[in-house]
């Protein structure tokens, strides 16, 4: 590719990126100003004095730390459960010999296609009768179930590319099957595990409708609720509303910035081969 062509492409990408990120820039910009500025003609404003009050409202009245802790806790437990469950299933699907293997693999993959929204209503009844609504498990169980099919799919694809010889040497050394999976295979599948962990994190962090249906107790609500609650409470204070949205987005963006190479590598290794 010639230099001029590359420069043209560079400028084009830069323009697209500006347009694409513009709503987010606008959101951040207006989270720093008085709500009255919203009705000015200006597209973006340069704040004379930054209105930190918006962020103080969001942090204190929005009960941000409380929701943040719930989101972190629920996401963390879900990730650990998803990885353990998916890696052991993926191992049974790729390496072990059993008759019903293709059948159960197909069944689990169906989980990617079945809309969770169609299971919301009956799940609400089931969780209610099991006493799971308004508890952390009422979020962790469905989140794990929803994450497992896709994670198993990615891990199965990745595991197929690992040579069997490694396990053979493990067997020679007299390691049990459980040690082989969690001490030999797990480190080797790390790139795919990171992908699975990060996508599961993003899904849990951002999930709304199940939390909205299964949780009504303040104690267990997660971050997306803080945005909703706040919108009701501060319905005309747009600046503070925007501040809550910015605060909610920051952790996910940081995690993404840290792991973005891994997500790309994982998708390249897993999803393409299928």
């Amino acid at each position: 590719m010639t230099k001029s062509k590359r420069t043209a492409l560079w400028i084009f990408f830069l323009l697209v990126a500006c347009v694409q990120l513009f709503p987010l820039v606008w959101l951040t910009d207006f989270s720093l100003v008085e709500s009255s500025e919203f009705f000015s003609e200006k597209v973006l404003v340069w704040p004379d004095s930054i209105k930190w009050d918006n962020y103080i409202n969001a942090w204190v009245d929005g009960n941000f730390l409380h929701y943040l802790w719930n989101s972190v806790f629920v996401s963390f437990v879900t990730i650990v459960l998803t990885v353990i469950v998916s890696i052991s299933m993926a191992y049974a699907f790729t390496r072990m010999n059993w008759k019903w293997r293709p059948f159960f693999y197909a069944v689990i993959l169906l989980g990617i296609m079945i809309p969770i929204h169609a299971t919301l209503l009956p799940n609400f009844s089931i969780f209610k009768s099991l006493g799971l609504t308004n508890s952390y498990w009422g979020l962790i169980l469905p989140y794990t179930s929803v994450s497992v099919p896709f994670s198993t799919f990615i891990l199965t694809g990745f595991m197929r590319s690992i040579p069997v010889e490694i396990e053979e040497s493990g067997v020679m050394d007299g390691a049990s099957i459980y040690r082989i999976v969690f001490q030999l295979i797990l480190p080797l599948t790390m790139p795919a595990v990171v992908t699975v962990a990060v996508t599961t994190f993003l899904n849990c962090w951002n999930e709304f409708i199940m939390a909205y249906t299964f949780i009504s107790d303040e104690r267990f609500k997660t971050l997306p609720f803080s945005v909703m609650n706040f919108a009701g409470q501060y319905s005309s204070d747009y600046g503070s509303q925007f501040a809550v949205m910015v605060l909610t987005s920051i952790p996910a963006i940081i995690i993404y910035a840290m792991f973005n190479e891994k997500i790309t590598k994982g998708v390249m290794a897993g999803a393409v081969k299928g």
């Binding site: 998916s86 052991s88 390496r95 159960f104 799940n123 169980l141």
Partner: peptide, 29 residues
């Protein structure tokens, strides 16, 4: 790799999750 117990232990938790959030609700639905 033919260890029946291991296969069961590897597959059962995943299937249990699947049954709890997909199969049981669909039957109830």
């Amino acid at each position: 790799l033919n260890d029946r117990l291991a296969i069961f232990l590897f597959v059962f938790p995943g299937l249990a999750f699947f049954v709890l959030t997909f199969v049981a609700p669909i039957i109830l639905s």
